[in-house]
Design a binder for these strands. Structure first.
Lengths: 251, 251
DNA sequence: CGATATCTTGATAAGCATCAATGTGAGTGG
DNA sequence: CCACTCACATTGATGCTTATCAAGATATCG
């Protein structure tokens, strides 16, 4: 992944250790990013920042897993995202963090000063494009999640989640995944309760779609069945024809 | 940050007729946006583009209401957003539209050529900042919606929706709103069925929180009660203290 | 003013939440 | 090294919220 070395890639040899953020950027841009970033670490369950805080620095996850969450006043919780290595936290531009970021596992991060980062953004068109693309991808992911939360059943939610984790952490074709988050995080991410997540996983196991080796290691035995449950068109062909038919006014 | 009408605002008097997109931008930037845009109109229920289409032009809603929706293969539908005047559609940067855009009512739009728009984006730092802020706001809205879909009850969803519409279309303190979309759109936006939306509105009416003058005109009689139902902290004080207490590891 | 879509209301059922125990694994200290 | 403990995961029994199916009321448009 880190090593899609194409002709256009101009990272230095030492870039193997560089933040993923630099990947495929011009050499001078990535050098300046390197200068800007400082290491930061976070132990499991620790918070990086809280919803409502003044937006401070920007963080890149280097290793570990971070959860982004929002709360209702009475304590109900929703995870609005997970950050894997290479993802950024704290990009908000309106002055205040809109979600809380907490470490799920012990994490290594890189910290960037917001002002410096934004200055660099003004000067580096390639970084700018990268950031636009990143925000755009996040928005797409958010919409996927809205569709899931609004319209999928518990089975479909869990199947989608397992496939999503596989895609994010291993390749698209991986069949063994590690769930670094607990059932409560999965539940709050999918809009379910812990019990329903557990029951659903058990059912998928009973039906032979997956098997568990420990509560946090899942083997995807029947991808086809999981994908037809998830049925969000991510793994399947990108819905081709009969598009004109989808118009709503019925005739 | 960039939206407070300060001394730096340099819109021409004629800017009153200019697309909202130009608001508060430098004179030359807004002039160039004006040159770029061409009028476009759409009648109710017509589609602007479909999910999966190659991304073509970018549209700004001038008047009317547009819905953004995603579908599951079996036809289940989720609205991932509404576009009000001033909002943009089709900003995706990955080459393909990720949602379908349809006119709810008759609409007037402005159409921008994507290539030209992106070129202008490279040249106009103020427009660039505006676009970053816009994407950032959309992401925040998406997260609000995820919290709503994942964790709110039907009552809370509908109350949140009514207040949101009031905020978007009138001022924050307005007490009469017009619902230009049908119950089906509201249902698909809130992850409910038409029947549940209807019943919930009826209940709010019976309880004296709102009253209806026609199915599409709502009067908010008891904002306080609606807000405490919605309880997302949008209308209330921006959750101040006791933030350190929200840390999870229980000691 | 009639035809048709949309909205409302009612009866019933399903899916998921809730409450309550039991099982399991990781970390701790004897 | 093993028992102990605590958090976490699983399973079970039950009930509530919301979906579904089915009429009926109202609005909208030609």
């Amino acid at each position: 992944m880190l090593t899609h070395a194409t002709a256009t890639t101009r990272c230095t040899p030492s870039a193997a250790m560089a933040p993923v953020l630099c990947r495929d950027l011009h050499e001078d841009t990535s050098e300046r990013i390197l200068e800007l970033g400082t290491p930061h670490s976070l132990s499991a369950q620790e918070a990086l920042f809280w919803e409502g805080d003044d937006a401070g620095d920007i963080f890149e996850v280097v290793e570990g897993l971070v959860r982004l969450l929002r709360l209702l006043p009475d304590g109900r919780r929703a995870l609005v995202g997970f950050l894997f290595p290479g993802d950024l936290a704290g990009l908000c531009l309106n002055g205040r963090h809109v979600y809380t970021a907490e470490a799920v596992t012990d994490c290594r991060l890189r910290r960037y000063n917001r002002r410096q980062f934004q200055a660099l953004l003004e000067q580096a068109p390639d970084l700018r494009q990268r950031m636009f693309a990143l925000l755009s991808d996040e928005l797409t992911a958010a919409q996927d999640q809205m569709l899931l939360l609004a319209r999928k059943t518990a089975d479909e939610k869990v199947a989608s989640f397992l496939l999503w984790i596989a895609r994010k952490t291993r390749g698209a074709r991986a069949s063994a995944i590690e769930l670094r988050m607990g059932r409560a995080d999965i539940a709050d991410f999918l809009g379910l309760t812990v019990e329903t997540v557990s029951r659903t996983i058990s059912r998928l196991k009973r039906d032979g779609l997956i098997c568990l080796t420990g509560a946090h290691e899942v083997r995807l035995l029947r991808r086809d069945a999981l994908e037809s449950l998830a049925e969000d068109g991510h793994a399947v062909a990108p819905h081709p024809v009969e598009r004109r038919n989808r118009a709503r006014w019925p005739i």
